[in-house]
Amino acid sequence: MASFNFKSIFKKINKKNNSLNNQESDFLNNFGLAEFGSALDMLAAAELTTTNKLKKGYLNHAIDEFRHAQLFFNHAKNLINNSNNNSANVSGIAEIGERIRYLNFIGEKPIYSELNELDFINFVMISEAAAEKYFTKLSNNKNFNSETRALFSLIAKEEGHHVLYAKKELEKRRKNGVKGIYKSYLYIKWFRFKTDLLSNTRKIWTKIGDLILALIFFIFIPINKIFFKKNYKFNTYDPRSMI
């Protein structure tokens, strides 16, 4: 399943020169984390669904996404190993968790529990179709080397299979007389548009926030530095206080 933020990752990577292995590796790692997050979504669906027949489908889908994540991670690792990169700026484990959440909009609850079953199937279908489209586009992008393009092509193909599974399930429901399938489709379209918008807005606010904080830093921090006492100490102790 595609992460909501995939589009922006692609935009960035398209601007890069294909010789920049390290940057390409970073982007591939981001894809890996996004696929990993999607696998967690599908695994949660497998745990939570009360439709027993779908349990296996969700689990298989999760296993596919875990495999995609691993393919991206391995390819990113190979790119780094083939370059003369000596950078050891290694992220902490908690930062990686934050990136998985950020890339996938993972909230406190799994996305499955925020939607009903029908909405979730539509969500899978729409997201996978978007991923298939993006990966197909990337697989034709000559900025990437042939191995990377082959990887994108493979993933696109498999995302296509996921779309078919979801479509099949919806079709089965339609034949069984389930109503509101199209309504659910429209709702998920809106839901995704909303989250995409939120994602882009978040990026704008992040940039504005950075600017404001940088201003605060250059205006207020020097003033405070004049009065700065290194060995501050709190002697009072109150269990209800946050300080």
């Binding site: 950075d210 904080l213 940088a214 530095k225 290194k230 300080i243």
Partner: peptide, 28 residues
């Protein structure tokens, strides 16, 4: 939490101006 926050603020002040990106990302 607030005690920790003050420590971070103090670090930002003590290591000014090298602490700019530290300050921005921590404050966020």
């Amino acid at each position: 939490p607030l005690k920790k926050f003050l420590r971070i603020l103090n670090s930002s002040i003590e290591y000014f101006p090298k602490s700019r990106s530290f300050f921005v990302s921590q404050m966020k």
